[in-house]
């Protein structure tokens, strides 16, 4: 069965399974609930807004794994 993912790319159910697993395992290995990242994002928006101007929609938070270490990347593009 072919399903389309959120970017409009055609994906087989096997690819969907692989993608879902890769995402959840990064959270599992870091012992972090995915929902926690959402709460962190909200708090960050509040905190950073006090000092800097930026578009909250452009903010990106990404948890990844490199060399057995969990890395949290936060990108906040600032307004000119």
């Amino acid at each position: 069965m072919i399903i389309t993912n959120i970017w409009g790319k055609k994906m087989s159910s096997k690819e969907i399974a692989k993608e879902r697993l890769q995402v959840i395992l990064v959270y599992d290995r870091a012992k972090i609930e995915p929902k926690m990242i959402e709460s962190l994002k909200e708090d960050l928006i509040k905190a950073v807004s006090k000092y800097l101007t930026f578009e909250p929609d452009n903010m990106r938070i990404e948890l990844s794994q490199e060399d057995n270490k969990s890395i949290l990347r936060i990108d906040i593009p600032l307004k000119e």
Partner: peptide
């Protein structure tokens, strides 16, 4: 099923 893209294959699992 692996060949038809309906089941995770050996390579996928080793990758993950």
């Amino acid at each position: 099923m692996v060949r038809n893209g309906e089941m995770l294959g050996v390579d996928d699992l080793l990758d993950i």
